[in-house]
């Protein structure tokens, strides 16, 4: 059904690519993060709820077709359905049916709750293509309530000490999930430009978020004391972040589960909040598909494949354009797997 080509995963029966790495004729896009949505293809298919953010991420005038979750789309001799992946607003798993065989490509996904996007939906299939960003048993997310209570107490303590809280998280997805969990009673919420743009698209998509102020506005310096500033990771230690004077820096990412990752960045606080599935979630998700064959991509492919094989599944690792492992946490530019 699917083959891995130099442009990415290709379905011959339907003549389309899923999240291609290079411009192609027809691309089915699981979600709008940069390593899944590449510019220049002739036609795109994505979920209705993801249309706004994808349009903002692709070149102006890109030809994008939108489908509701569960809606049937016929491509060549295949039938496609998009199902929610719970990763970010509009993120989808791609279900492909052809000649009685069903494949599901997960894209990036999480099974934990997130008020800013439609929850992950398990889909039965014969072959499941899963991500494995956090595919090791050290990654078991603490409850969302606990993480947000830590974030809010940190913010409250900083505010009481007259400090600004700078909270880093990817501009699309993570930032909005953070906004949704903040206790807006503590103080004003400021945003970096990249975050503000994506946040307004979320609001347009009907997601309710607390009021935010663009930190680039002329009077933001005066406002920042006691405020929390939501910014993408690359804003850390940049000239941009200096405007906040005395501030404490936190970072919300699954990588923060490990102390070394936090210390590498000399952060004040790390919060283990991820939009990817953790180890127990990954195993449960695979099991729920009922798939006998699993393709593992992006992340700890080796250990996940071995684990699945030892449990009698037909599993294999497939390459991605971006090396998984820990490369992400060391990148200084915008990277969606943070």
């Amino acid at each position: 059904m699917l083959t891995l080509t130099s442009s990415g995963l290709y379905c011959q029966a339907g003549d389309f690519f899923i999240d291609p790495w290079e411009p192609v004729d027809r691309a089915v896009i699981t979600h709008a993060h940069g390593d899944h949505a590449t510019w220049g293809s002739r036609a795109y298919l994505t979920s209705r709820t993801g249309l706004g953010v994808l349009r903002a991420r692709l070149e102006p005038g890109a030809c994008i077709q939108a489908a509701e979750y569960g809606e049937q789309v016929v491509l060549g001799s295949t039938t496609i359905r998009l199902h929610p992946a719970g990763h970010i607003l509009g993120s989808s798993q791609v279900r492909i049916e052809h000649a009685g065989e069903i494949w599901v490509v997960s894209g990036d996904y999480k099974t934990d709750p997130d008020p800013t996007c439609t929850p992950f939906e398990p889909v039965r299939c014969h072959t499941f293509v899963t991500e494995s960003t956090f595919g090791l048993p050290i990654y078991r997310w603490p409850s969302q309530e606990q993480v947000f209570s830590e974030i809010n107490s940190w913010w409250r303590a900083n505010a009481a000490a007259g400090k600004t809280s700078l909270l880093l998280g990817y501009a699309l997805g993570k930032a909005q999930r953070l906004l949704a969990g903040l206790d807006a009673g503590i103080g004003p919420i400021l945003t970096h430009g990249a975050v503000e743009r994506m946040t307004s698209l979320y609001r347009e998509g009907g997601v309710e978020l607390p009021a935010t102020h663009y930190a680039g506005a002329a009077d933001s310096r005066a406002d920042a004391t006691g405020a929390i500033v939501i910014a993408p990771p690359y804003a850390d230690a940049s000239i941009w972040s200096r405007r906040f004077g005395d501030h404490s820096t936190g970072f919300a990412s699954g990588w923060m589960m490990v102390r070394g990752a936090r210390r590498q960045r000399s952060l004040d606080r790390g919060f283990a909040l991820s939009d990817h599935v953790d180890w127990p979630g990954l195993l449960a998700a695979i099991e729920a598909t009922g798939a006998g064959e699993v393709w593992v991509t992006h992340g700890y492919t080796g250990p996940v494949v071995r684990w699945l094989k030892e449990r009698g599944l037909d599993a294999r690792a497939i390459a991605t354009r971006f090396e998984g492992e820990r490369a992400e946490v060391t990148e200084t530019s915008e990277d969606p797997h943070l």
Binding site: L136, P137, I138, Y139, G260, Y300, R306
Partner: peptide
């Protein structure tokens, strides 16, 4: 073997044990 993979990812035995 999976513990060893985890340990390499964490780089600290005490922490790796704690996390698994």
């Amino acid at each position: 073997w999976l513990f060893e993979e985890s340990y390499h990812a964490v780089g600290d035995l005490a922490e790796a044990i704690t996390l698994v």
